[in-house]
C-alpha cells in the first residue's frame, strides 16, 4: 500500500520515529485488535488505537450507556444515553480516524462464542469488568496462542500485564482461580476515580502498539501496579508457573469454562 497525502500528515509524528517509520505505520494500519469491554478501559484503549491507525478494531460489549458511566467512559456522551456502548464506540473512533473500521460485537462473551470472536484478531485487550470474563479471555487466549493485554482498575489502583502464551506467564499463573464472590467488593464499594481508567487504558494501548511494532519490551512475566493516591508505579515479577492449570507443562484446563456470574456486576 502507498500512503495518501492525508495519511502522511495524519501519521507524521509516527513516521519520523526511527522505531516506527512508514513500515511500522503500515503494520499498524494492517493490524487487527479486539477490545473486550467498551467501558472505562476499553474507551481510552480504543481511542488511542484508533488515533494510531489500527486498521480493524473489534469491540465487545453488550451493555447500553448509562449516566453513571460518563464520569470515566470517554468514548460515550450524554446524547447517547441508552445507545449500545459498542455502537457508540464505533461512532467515536471512526469519526476520529476514517482509516479505522470498528466492528461492534454486542454480545456477552461465553465459552461458546469467544473462540469464533477472537479468531479474526492479532491481539486481544481485556478491559472487562468482571472475573468470569477475565478468566474466560485468559484461557481462550492461552489455548489459541493469542497475545493478551490485560488491565484492571478499582478505586485508586490499577494493574496492567501482557500475556504472551507459553512465552510468559498468564493470568492463572498469578491467581489460579477467580476469587470467591464474597471477596469481591460490593457495588457500593466499587468506586473508581474517573481518570484512573485513562492511565491504565493508555498503558494498555501502548503495550498493544509495542506488540504490533515488535519494539521495546512487553510487560510479560510482570504485573505493573499503579497507585493513584501515592502516584507510584511498581512492577511485580510473575514467572510462568510450570504447574499453571492452563499454560503449565501438563495443563488441567484444556477447554473453556464459564464461571457462575454470581459477582456483582461492577461496571468499570
Amino acid at each position: 500500500m502507498e500512503f495518501t497525502d492525508e495519511q502522511i500528515h495524519r501519521y507524521s509524528r509516527h513516521i519520523i520515529l526511527p522505531e516506527v517509520g512508514g513500515k511500522g505505520q503500515k503494520r499498524i494500519l494492517q493490524s487487527r485488535v479486539l477490545i473486550v469491554g467498551a467501558g472505562g478501559l476499553g474507551c481510552p484503549v480504543g481511542y488511542y488505537l484508533a488515533a494510531a491507525g489500527v486498521g480493524t478494531i473489534g469491540i465487545v460489549d453488550s451493555d447500553t450507556i448509562e449516566l453513571s458511566n460518563l464520569q470515566r467512559q470517554i468514548a460515550h456522551n450524554t446524547e447517547r444515553l441508552g445507545m449500545p456502548k459498542a455502537d457508540s464506540a464505533k461512532l467515536t473512533f471512526e469519526a476520529l480516524n476514517p482509516d479505522v473500521t470498528v466492528i461492534p460485537i454486542k454480545e456477552r462473551l461465553n465459552k461458546d462464542n469467544i473462540l469464533d470472536i477472537i479468531r479474526d484478531y492479532d491481539i486481544v485487550v481485556d478491559g472487562s469488568d468482571n472475573f468470569p470474563t477475565r478468566y474466560l479471555v485468559n484461557d481462550a487466549c492461552v489455548l489459541t496462542g493469542k497475545p493478551l493485554v490485560s488491565g484492571a482498575i478499582l478505586r485508586f489502583e490499577g494493574q496492567v500485564t501482557t500475556i504472551l502464551p507459553r512465552d510468559g506467564h498468564c493470568y492463572r499463573c498469578l491467581f489460579e482461580e477467580p476469587p470467591p464472590p464474597g471477596l469481591v467488593p460490593s457495588c457500593q464499594e466499587a468506586g473508581v476515580l474517573g481518570a484512573l481508567p485513562g492511565v491504565i487504558g493508555a498503558l494498555q494501548a501502548m503495550e498493544v502498539l509495542k506488540l504490533i511494532l515488535q519494539k521495546g519490551e512487553p510487560l510479560k512475566n510482570q504485573l505493573l501496579i499503579y497507585n493513584a493516591l501515592t502516584t507510584s508505579f511498581r512492577k511485580v515479577r510473575v514467572p510462568r508457573r510450570s504447574d499453571c492449570p492452563v499454560c503449565g507443562d501438563s495443563p488441567t484446563i484444556t477447554e473453556l469454562h464459564d464461571y457462575e456470574a454470581e459477582y456483582c456486576q461492577m461496571r468499570f
Binding site: 502522511i8 507524521s12 519520523i16
Partner: peptide, 9 residues
C-alpha cells in the same frame, strides 16, 4: 516536518 517525513518514506 513533512520535508523529513517525505524524505524518510
Amino acid at each position: 516536518p513533512y520535508t523529513f517525513v517525505k524524505s524518510k518514506l
